[in-house]
Amino acid sequence: MENAIIGITFLYLLSSAGYIAYLFLQKDVLHRLSGYVLALAFLGHTATIGYNFLMAGHMPVSDLHETLSVAAWAIVGVYILFQHQFNLKVLGAFAAPLAGMAMIASDLLPRIPLLAQNSLRSIWLVFHVLAVFSGEAAFALACGIGVLYLIQEKTIKTKKRRFFYRRLPSLEFLDSSGYVCVVAGFTLLTIGLATGFVYAKMIWGKFLSWDPKEIWSGVTWLLYAALIHERLVVGWRGRKSAILAIIGFCVIIFTFLGVNLLMKGHHEVFTRW
C-alpha cells in the first residue's frame, strides 16, 4: 500500500513536470502524455482509496494523511472532467502540481492507528465527504483559472504580450469556464453541507453544533453565494470575479487546514497528525 501511494505520487509529479514542460515548449505530445500519466495515476489512486474504504468499512478520512490524499484525488478527478469539457490546456500545470503537493504532504504525515468508530459508518458521511471534496476541487480549479485570467488580463492591459499571451485562451473563455467551476463547486458544496447536517442530526442529534469547521464552511458558502449573486445581478465578471475566486479558495484552505489545526471541534479528528 505504501509503495502504491508513493508510485501514485511519483506519477502525479511526472505528469506535473509534463504539463509544466508543455507550458514552455507548447508541444502537444507533452500535453497528451501528461494526460495519460495523470489518468493512470488517477485510476491507481481510485483503486487505493476504494481498497482502504473496503478495509476500514468507511471513507478513508480518519486522519490528515488520508484526508489530503482524498483531496488530491478529488482535484485530479474534477480536473480530468473539466479538461474533457473545456480543453484548457495550460490548466494542467496548475492542477497536477497541486495534487502532487497534497500527495507529498500526505506521504510525509504519520498514519494514526484507527479508533473503532461506528459513527463513521454512514452512507450520509460518504455523500458528505465526496460532495464537499469534489466541490472544493472545483473551487481549486476556479482559483487556478482566476490566476490565469488575471495574468492574461494584465498582458492585454499592459500591452506586453510575451510569454503568456499566446499560451492562454481568451479572457471570455477563462471568465466563463471559471464561472462554470464556481457554480459546480457551489452546487456540490451545498449538497455536501446538507448531507453533513443530516449526518450530524443522526449522530449528535442536532443539525448544527457551532463547531468552527461548520462556521467556516458556512462562511465559504456565503462567499461563493455572494460571488454568484453579484455576477447574476450586477454583472461582476472578469477581474473582480477572478479575485473573488482566488480569495474563496484561500478561505477553503483555511477551513480545511487552519480551522483544524488552530481551533478545536469535532472535525478535528479528521485532520489529526
Binding site: 492585454i156 481568451s170 471570455e172 473563455f173
Partner: peptide, 9 residues
C-alpha cells in the same frame, strides 16, 4: 487578433 484574445469568438 487582439479582439479574439478578449472575446474568444
Amino acid at each position: 487578433e487582439l479582439g479574439r484574445k478578449i472575446f474568444g469568438e
